[in-house]
Write a protein that binds this DNA or RNA. Sequence first.
DNA 1: TTACCTGCAAACCGTTTGCCGGGAT
DNA 2: ATCCCGGCAAACGGTTTGCAGGTAA
Lengths: 133, 133
Amino acid sequence: MKYSKQRDLILSIVRNTTIHPSAEWVYEQAKKEMPSIGIATVYRNLNALVGSGEIERITAAGHVDRFDGQVSEHCHMQCVRCGKLIDLYPDSEENMERLRELICETFGVEDKNVRISRTLLRGVCNKCIDSEN
Amino acid sequence: MKYSKQRDLILSIVRNTTIHPSAEWVYEQAKKEMPSIGIATVYRNLNALVGSGEIERITAAGHVDRFDGQVSEHCHMQCVRCGKLIDLYPDSEENMERLRELICETFGVEDKNVRISRTLLRGVCNKCIDSEN
DNA sequence: TTACCTGCAAACCGTTTGCCGGGAT
DNA sequence: ATCCCGGCAAACGGTTTGCAGGTAA
């Protein structure tokens, strides 16, 4: 892939936040540094970066796609009520391995078929549980 | 909710297939029985049925929303290469419970926050693994 | 030089909405 | 009689694409 100033900027924007930004948010940030940049360029490069594995796409019902530049193995949980995304970092590789084994056993799938990292789990955040009353 | 012939038809179509149909597919099927039905009606009723919990929506990156009329507790796995959706039925409630506990331990979340059912797991189907060579 | 890339605007496409007439209760 | 619901078509919103000019290799 040929170098471009734009892709470089977009990658650094996505890497330097933990808010799981949308394309629109990345575009707004990018314009601050490079006012002439177009939204199409942002989309094209986000797609390219997802394709090359440098960032991750998070797709969830009722929400625009979001992106994540954290490279370490982790998952997300989305609140089924308010849509908030929460990073879930595993406490140990051993537990990730146990999780993988248990998923295979429970659902009858083979180990080689499973990709645990980047799974979007479902849940309810504390704020939404509290406001249920 | 007021009864309607259209919603009844749409629900039975979604319930009587295991292919996880898209709105468009449901619309095509519905037209066979009720040629005057409109696509907006299909979308409105699919949304209503998801809202009332009678069917489930499956949202995955790069694909239109799909729907699932199976009421039993289960998950899905989507092939990250070809997008195919596979039903995952748990072998036992005990393992589902163990899974829940392990997820809480591994990611440091509380039991009350986790919804395992309907999680969309990530994986690679056998066909795609084979064609990797 | 020659691809590949960008910016712009228009197109795209799945989905939603406004309107008004019709059917359920 | 009421008012929710359906059909139609237009709007919507996020994303992609075609084009012509620019930039990295």
